[in-house]
């Protein structure tokens, strides 16, 4: 019953998003594309935070790698092929996640938070010092990737609606993949690790391998989000690897309600819309945002998703 209702709500939300370009102008299409990119990013982090109990404060590292991968793969004044550059960007993020994961997974608990942050900062400073990657000024990607395949172009990413649908497809695919992963035996083992890692080991689970696999999957999907972000804005800067973005995406996951996937999507919508609304009102928009976050922690112990579930219960 509960599951059926959840499925109906999700399908309805997807239908609304699919119909949105018929109603909205360019500005809102771009805003919503940005939100959906953050939602993909947040869902990938939810696999770590909500399902495995790994609180990464450096997840932007993989987002940034996906973004910089598009820059590296794009010829200067021509388009990269989507079908080549996208898998390579995702692959680059996955490889980086495997290498970093091997190191950071030696730490646990609160030191994991600090160590993931520190590794992301390491990449951040690497990019700052790298001339080929544009240093602190960032780099421009002048031409969006092309979707042409054997002379046929299904959709142009230069059209806002075209790009919007690409992002929507990526969002749906990410949700389905992560849903599949979390409901598999592997996903159940991750939940076991989150609940009681030492017991898992005593039962015979090589928990470090499981955590590493989760870290790589999450990193790969974060790379997808970063790639899409670079495509949308045509500009990549070290901020995409920075701790502020890592913090923001963590906020989306926690505010939305961990371990639900759709909660992360909700968190992305609320946080990006809030930022967007607040920047219109005041130059000091971080103040109300910060207060909102503080109050949310103090008053909503289980995130916005928890609030929804509670409202639903009251309704029943």
């Amino acid at each position: 019953m509960q599951a059926a209702r959840e499925r109906t709500m999700l399908l309805a939300a997807f239908a609304l998003l699919a119909l949105f370009p018929l109603l909205a102008g360019t500005f809102y299409l771009q805003l919503f594309a940005k939100i959906m990119i953050m939602a993909i990013f947040a869902m990938s982090l939810d696999l770590l935070v909500g399902y495995t109990g790994l609180v990464s404060f450096g997840h932007a590292a993989f987002f940034g790698i996906g973004a910089y991968a598009l820059f590296v793969l794009s010829p200067q004044y021509a388009a990269a092929s989507l079908y080549l550059s996208l898998p390579m960007a995702i692959g680059a993020a996955a490889v980086a996640a495997a290498v970093i994961g091997l190191l950071v997974l030696r730490a646990s608990g609160v030191s994991f938070i600090m160590v993931t942050l520190a590794f992301a900062q390491m990449l951040f400073y690497y990019v700052i010092g790298s001339k080929t990657l544009g240093g602190s000024d960032g780099v421009y990607i002048y031409v969006k990737p092309s979707t042409t395949l054997f002379g046929w172009t299904p959709v142009s990413l230069d059209r806002p609606a075209g790009f919007y649908y690409l992002v929507l497809a990526a969002l749906a695919a990410t949700y389905l993949v992560l849903r599949f992963v979390t409901r598999s035996l592997f996903g159940h083992a991750l939940l076991g690790i989150r609940s009681n890692e030492s017991r898992m080991r005593a039962l015979g689970f090589a928990t470090t391998s499981y955590k590493l696999a989760a870290f790589v999957i999450a990193g790969a999907i974060a790379g997808l989000a970063g790639y899409l972000d670079a495509t949308q804005f045509g500009f990549v800067s070290p901020d995409l690897l920075g701790w502020r973005l890592s913090g923001e995406v963590l906020m989306m996951v926690i505010l939305g309600g961990m371990g639900t996937l759709y909660g992360s999507v909700l968190g992305a919508f609320v946080l990006v819309l809030l930022q967007d609304g607040l920047t219109d009102v005041t130059r000091h928009w971080l103040l109300p945002l910060g207060l909102f976050i503080i109050l949310a922690v103090l008053l909503l112990p289980r995130g916005l998703g928890g609030l929804l579930r509670r409202a639903e219960k009251a309704h029943d």
Partner: peptide, 26 residues
């Protein structure tokens, strides 16, 4: 925050960074 998950500590103190940053700016 005592006794609560590290997550909420991270969240709240991150919010506090933003607030202190803007208070400094003001």
């Amino acid at each position: 925050l005592y006794g609560r998950d590290h997550l909420y500590q991270v969240l709240l103190t991150y919010g506090l960074i933003l607030v202190l940053e803007e208070i400094r700016s003001l």
